[in-house]
Computed example of a mutant assay.
Amino acid sequence: MEDPAGQRQVLVCQYQNCLARGSAQVLAAFQSHPVPDTSISASGCLGQCNMGPNVRVVPDEVWYCRVQPSDVPAVVEEHLQAGHAVEPLLHPRFHPKRF
């Protein structure tokens, strides 16, 4: 799924369950916070319907769940610009907490 130019992609699920939970607004929030060398794309189902809205960042392979429009500035600033995942939003299936 990596962009041919090698740039980072933010995929925001726009399938039924995520849409019902506000993913269109999440997508719009990302689109209003552009980041150089990063594309923002609507995606089909990411297969994590019970945890939506879901956002996947590739090629980083970071998955965020239950993302709200108010979370987008933190993802942009902390992850896309500073390179640090936003821990409270990490999807537990892909990023289990280590004790």
Rank of each mutant, 00 (worst) to 15 (best):
C18P: 07
A20N: 15
A20E: 15
R21S: 06
R21H: 04
G22P: 11
A24S: 15
A24R: 14
A24F: 06
V26E: 12
V26S: 03
A28Y: 01
A29N: 07
A29W: 02
Q31V: 03
Q31D: 15
Q31K: 15
Q31G: 08
H33Y: 08
H33N: 13
P34F: 08
P34L: 03
V35W: 02
P36H: 02
D37S: 15
I40A: 00
A42M: 06
A42D: 05
S43R: 00
C45K: 08
C45H: 11
C45V: 12
L46P: 06
L46F: 06
L46E: 05
G47I: 08
G47W: 12
Q48G: 05
C49S: 09
N50P: 03
N50L: 11
M51D: 14
M51F: 14
M51Y: 15
M51A: 14
P53H: 13
P53L: 10
P53V: 06
N54V: 15
N54A: 10
V55H: 06
V55D: 03
R56L: 09
R56D: 02
V57W: 01
V57L: 09
V57F: 01
V58M: 07
P59R: 07
D60F: 07
D60N: 02
V62D: 04
Y64S: 13
C65W: 00
C65Y: 00
R66C: 01
V67H: 04
Q68C: 06
Q68L: 09
P69D: 05
S70F: 03
D71M: 01
D71L: 03
D71K: 00
D71Y: 00
D71W: 00
V72H: 00
V72S: 05
